[in-house]
């Protein structure tokens, strides 16, 4: 059995991050979650630089990406990931409060793998996060390491 890859959660709001972790706790996948607080940190993690210089190499199983974040926003991070030959296989799930059609269209146009609107109701929210975590972090087989774009 291979060790599970980490789940990268990009969430600038610490309460949202805590609630998300609380939801994942129930399925014991919370310890696999790495929380980044802005887009710049996500990119630091993915490119193993700054505070993540010493981390074990390898891409996360999935990136949960908030749209509105300080420094570098979600759309910018998504664009960077999908335009990088080494990163663009990483599944990216947009996890956001925005139901705006513009955000939906732009995210899918840039190659987002899924788009989930955070429900206001906690039970729905917890179910959504749980399902997402289990599906992308456990059930879904991530792309093999070292796979690069053929383009």
């Amino acid at each position: 059995m291979t060790t599970l890859k980490p789940i990268l959660l990009a969430e600038d709001n610490p309460r949202d991050a805590e609630l998300t972790l609380a939801a994942m706790e129930e399925h014991h996948i919370a310890d696999k979650v790495v929380v980044c607080h802005d887009g710049a940190e996500v990119l630091d993690y993915l490119y193993c630089r700054g505070p993540y210089k010493t981390r074990r190499h390898g891409n996360p199983a999935v990136v949960f990406l908030d749209l509105k974040m300080p420094k570098v926003d979600g759309i910018e991070v998504l664009r960077t990931i999908k335009n990088d030959a080494d990163l663009h296989h990483i599944p990216v799930v947009m996890l956001t409060s925005s139901r705006e059609e513009r955000d939906l269209a732009q995210s899918y146009a840039l190659g987002a793998n899924a788009y989930v609107v955070k429900p206001v109701e906690f039970h729905q929210f917890i179910n959504a996060v749980k399902e997402l975590g289990v599906f992308w972090g456990v059930i879904n087989e991530p792309p093999p390491e070292g796979l690069t774009s053929t383009q």
Partner: peptide, 9 residues
């Protein structure tokens, strides 16, 4: 929406 989610959460 975010604070409401937090209150309920």
């Amino acid at each position: 929406r975010a604070p409401l989610r937090h209150i309920d959460g």
